[in-house]
């Protein structure tokens, strides 16, 4: 796959959706859906993507789509898949169909985690895509368990006695992998070819698979709309958001910066970290955590 081919592949998310200018998820969702030539049914959790693409009487979806509620995209797609299997068993349907559940970080790391866990454990044949913009953006930038330590959100505002969110970000990849699934990948919208390849693998995986993709949010990250892709790139270059995959029991690192940039380079691009830039102690602590997680990941990837 290259950019030219990707640009010309059949698109399933139409224009006229109402996500903010510079939003990260439209290109993520388009790229993922381009990665299979089979028919796709989408189940989407409540959140920015669902809201901005299905404002009645308009829909941006060129493929069958269902939104049920915030916490149940995975359970919903399980029912759809069961219906498909039942009809296939009866010989009433011949097509091969792919099932895609999508949620933001709130709908995945938090309120939808149980539903996701259930579907992963049952071995439902679907791809779960989490577009992770690291907070509840749709309701106005509240902290989620995917919000990184130190980020300023409307429920963890930085103030005289606080530097923003206290807790570290939850490890979704590890949680998903612990279910014994065959494929999990972390990707970023700055490298759409890598994302495409991972989505293709996910769709071809037997049983459940998951794609965790960083999704820059100019509104919540307080960044310039034109910088979304560049910020995602910095997330990878600082090892804040490593690109890696887990395939049939093996970890593979997809990108290693020649010289990792300091985390402050990533923080500088976003207003949500503005208050941290002079907090040396916290910066050092966060840098330490990033490096520690990176070396753990490298070790996993070196395992034979």
């Amino acid at each position: 796959m290259n950019f030219k081919e990707l640009a010309m592949a059949s698109n399933k998310l139409a224009s006229g959706h109402r996500s903010c200018a510079g939003c990260g998820f439209p290109s993520i969702v388009r790229t993922v859906m381009k990665a299979t030539k089979k028919q796709i049914i989408v189940s989407c959790a409540t959140g920015c993507l669902e809201v901005t693409t299905t404002i009645y009487p308009y829909t941006s979806w060129l493929t069958p789509f269902i939104h049920n509620a915030f916490e149940n995209a995975s359970a919903t797609i399980s029912g759809v898949e069961a219906a498909y299997k039942a009809l296939k068993k009866k010989g009433k349907l011949r097509k091969d169909v792919k099932f895609l559940a999508i949620g933001g970080d709130g709908g995945t790391y938090d309120i939808g985690l149980q539903s996701l866990s259930g579907a992963l454990e049952r071995g439902q044949n679907f791809v779960y895509l989490c577009y992770d913009n690291e907070a509840y953006m749709n309701t106005g930038v509240q902290r989620s368990s995917a919000t990184p330590r130190g980020a300023n959100t409307t429920t963890t505002p930085a103030g005289k006695a606080s530097f923003g969110k206290l807790e570290w970000k939850k490890e979704l990849m590890q949680i998903a992998i612990a279910h014994g699934i065959n494929y999990a990948a972390q990707a970023s919208p700055h490298n759409l070819i890598d994302l495409y390849n991972k989505a293709e693998k996910a769709f071809n995986t037997k049983g459940p698979s998951i794609l965790v993709v960083l999704s820059p949010c100019p509104l919540g990250w307080k960044s310039n709309t034109n910088m979304s892709v560049q910020i995602a790139k910095l997330a990878a270059e600082t090892n804040f958001w490593p690109l890696y995959e887990y395939e049939n029991g093996k970890y593979v690192l997809n990108y290693e910066p020649a010289k990792r940039k300091p985390i402050i380079e990533f923080f500088k691009t976003q207003g949500r970290f503005k208050h941290l830039l002079k907090n040396k102690k916290l910066l050092e602590e966060i840098q330490g955590k990033v490096d520690e997680k990176w070396s753990k990941l490298k070790k996993l990837c070196e395992e034979k």
């Binding site: 139409a14 224009s15 006229g16 959706h17 109402r18 693409t53 299905t54 404002i55 009645y56 009487p57 308009y58 829909t59 941006s60 979806w61 060129l62 493929t63």
Partner: peptide, 14 residues
């Protein structure tokens, strides 16, 4: 509330 015209958001100009 079903929307039966797939991709009709193109009628909405942003």
């Amino acid at each position: 509330g079903m929307i039966t015209k797939a991709g009709n958001s193109e009628e909405y100009k942003t």
